[in-house]
């Protein structure tokens, strides 16, 4: 079971647009909200209102500063969750078969009742996509909201992962990468979607769209000429007043 399928019928995954992500962390919150009360064990928090809070999250947003050779630095918000790799090293290391990749849609899941909590899959993942829940002692990871995307009890518009549904900037897209005409395949092709850590050989399904080049204008400030310093020495009436007041006792 923990041997990987040679191919999957679909390759469901996410496209994350680093150009439009505003770093609001709404996807983090909605992910935690949905997944703590649905598939599998809840996502626990430790010391949530204390001095050193921590907890299990399936999606986290980093922020990086990118300094080009010329011009201004760019701030890039960087959401990171499971990339549902085609050659997922987390699956093959699992000794119990709790970790598996689904043949029908390529989603990487954990069967929590078989998980012994050895943590080896988290070691094998280069992306930090798996976190051991400190309360339940089982491995938690992004399920691509498998309990939403096929859920006929939800309105059709909601049958996407919670992070995608909630993103106010429209920076997250969900679809089938096996279909060359799908929204995610088209976006990836048009915008040059990138793989994270290709040298690790994991063949991630999720793609990241790099920030677009910023428009460049000459560094012209049209108001600057009108903002020349005012005369240092007052003239006319103001000049006489200045002198008169200075001459008075205590004037200077």
């Amino acid at each position: 079971m923990t041997t990987l399928p040679t191919s999957t019928q679909k390759k469901l995954g996410l496209v994350i647009d680093l150009d439009t992500c505003v770093g609001c962390h709404a996807c983090v919150v909605s992910c935690k909200g949905w997944n703590t009360e649905n598939y599998g064990a809840p996502l626990s928090d430790q010391d949530p209102y204390g001095a050193a809070p921590s907890g299990t999250f399936l999606n986290r947003v980093h922020s990086y500063e990118v300094q080009p050779d010329h011009g201004q630095a760019a701030l890039v918000h960087f959401p990171k969750s499971c990339l549902h790799c085609e050659d997922a090293p987390c699956v093959t290391v699992c000794p119990t078969g709790a970790s598996y990749k689904r043949v029908e849609d390529g989603i990487v899941l954990v069967n929590e009742s078989d998980c012994i909590g050895c943590g080896l899959c988290a070691w094998a993942c280069p992306y930090g996509a798996r976190e051991m829940d400190a309360e339940e002692k089982v491995m938690k990871k992004c399920t691509l909201c498998v309990d939403r995307i096929y859920n006929e009890n939800l309105p059709e518009v909601d049958r996407v992962p919670a992070c995608v549904r909630t993103c106010p900037a429209g920076a997250r897209h969900f679809g089938d990468f096996a279909d060359p005409d799908s929204n995610v395949s088209v976006l990836t092709a048009e915008r040059g979607g990138i793989e994270l850590m290709p040298e690790q050989g994991t063949k991630p399904v999720n793609r990241y769209l790099p920030p677009r080049a910023r428009d460049r204008t000459e560094d012209v400030d049209i108001l600057a000429p009108f903002l020349d310093p005012i005369a240092a020495e007052p003239q006319g009436f103001m000049g006489w007043l200045d002198k008169a007041l200075t001459a008075m006792p205590g004037g200077r």
Partner: peptide, 25 residues
Amino acid sequence: ATATGLGEMGGVRPFEPPHTGTNYL
């Protein structure tokens, strides 16, 4: 640079971590 795929744009450095506390990772 390869971890974020942003190396093409320039030098990458961490600006803000995802959370103020610690985590399992």
